[in-house]
Amino acid sequence: MAHHADDQYYVPHGTKWPIIGSLGMITMLASAAYWVNDSTVAPWTFLAGALILIYMVFGWFGEVIRESESGMYNDQVDTSFRMGMLWFIFSEVMFFACFFGALFYARVFAVPWLGGEGTGAYTNELLWRGYESVWPTAGPDQLGGSFQTIPAFGVPFINTLILLASGVTVTLAHHALKKNNRGALVSWLLATVLLGFVFVFFQIEEYKEAYQHLGLTMGSGIYGSTFFMLTGFHGMHVSLGAIMLLVIAIRCMRGHFNPEHHFGFEAVAWYWHFVDVVWLGLFVFVYVY
C-alpha cells in the first residue's frame, strides 16, 4: 500500500532524526577523544552524547515502526530494508575480518619473524637475540609481564554452548511467530535474551579473572591486544544484539508483527546469528587453537 493512493512508490517526508543522531554522535566521539586525553568532564558529555543517540534511535525507529504497523510499506520497501540489513552485516563481517586478519598476521608472520624465521633472522640476531617464537606471547620484551591464558574448555566453552543454544531458541521463536503462537514466541525470545545476557555476564567474569588473577591485560603484548580487541568488540555486539532482541520481545508482547510480515524480527535474528558465527571463529582461533 503506497503512501499516496496515486503513487506506486513509497517516499517518506522530511525527518529530524538524522541531524539529532549526528549531534549525539559528535558529542559522544569528541568527548571520547577528550576522555582518552584525560579530561574529567568528558565522561559526562560522553554520556550526554550517548543519551542523545539513544533518544534518536527510539524516535527514528519508533516512527518507522508506526509507519510499518499502519501498513504504509509495500514489498519494495521491505526489500530495501532487507538489503540494507544484509549489507550492514557484511560491513560488520569486514570489521571483524580486520581484527582476525591482525591475529593471523601476528601468528603466522610477525611473531615467527621476530623469532628469527624467514626474513627475520637479522631482526632476531640484532635486536632480540634469544627470543623464541611461541604463542601466546607478550613479545620479545614481555610487555605487561608474564601472564596465563583463559583455558578454552572452561567458561569459553560454556559460552559457546550458550550462544549456540540461543541460536536455537531464536529460531524456535521465529517458528512460533510464523505459526502465530504468541505465547511461545515471547517465551523463546525472552529465553534468547536471557542467554545473551548470561553470555555477557560470563564474559565480564572472565575479564575480571584475566585482569585480577592471570595477569592478562590489554597491555599483554600482541596476545593481550588481539584477545581483548576481538572478544571486546564481540562482547559489545552481543550486548547490542541482546538489547535489540529485548526490544523485539517487547514489541511482540504488544502484538506487533504478523506471521507474514516481521522484518524487524528477522533483521535482529540475522544479526544474532552473525554474532554467533563470529564467536565460533573466536572460540576456535582465540581460545582453542
Partner: peptide, 14 residues
Amino acid sequence: FFGTSFFNAAGGGD
C-alpha cells in the same frame, strides 16, 4: 592510548 601492541614489535606486534 590503551597500551596494546598491535604495531609494536617489542610486544610481538609489527
